[in-house]
């Protein structure tokens, strides 16, 4: 890829966000780091597993290291539940859960 784009990158996570998809997500997230501002959209996520959450954690750490701004657009309830269950909500910088 060429020089750094100033534009926002938006990464929409798939409905089934599990190990079968992490390869594609990995590539997408690495690409997104070219941008200075990255928006993660987790609104569609219905199923998620440890592999996907681990990838997001690594991405957040990398983004922090490279001083990128990462924002969550929306976080579905299953994503929230899984992250809390694994004790990763903080590392993922998930926004506080809105009351249903």
């Amino acid at each position: 890829m060429g020089g750094k784009s100033k534009q926002d990158a938006r990464v929409s996570m798939p409905v089934d966000c599990r190990i079968a998809e992490v390869g594609a997500m990995h590539a997408q997230l690495r690409g997104a780091l070219e941008s200075s501002r990255i928006v993660l959209d987790g609104s569609a996520v219905d199923r998620v597993d440890t592999a996907a959450l681990q990838l997001l954690v690594v991405f957040q750490r990398e983004a922090k290291k490279r001083e990128r701004q990462v924002q969550w657009a929306q976080v579905s309830a299953p994503l929230h539940d899984a992250a809390s269950q694994l004790g990763l909500a903080e590392a993922l910088a998930l926004p506080a859960r809105r009351p249903a």
């Binding site: 190990i19 780091l33 592999a51 681990q54 954690v57 990398e62």
Partner: peptide, 13 residues
């Protein structure tokens, strides 16, 4: 690991 070094199918947690 770092994002570049990560094999996303392996568990490091």
């Amino acid at each position: 690991p770092t994002l570049d070094a990560l094999d996303p199918c392996e568990c490091h947690l």
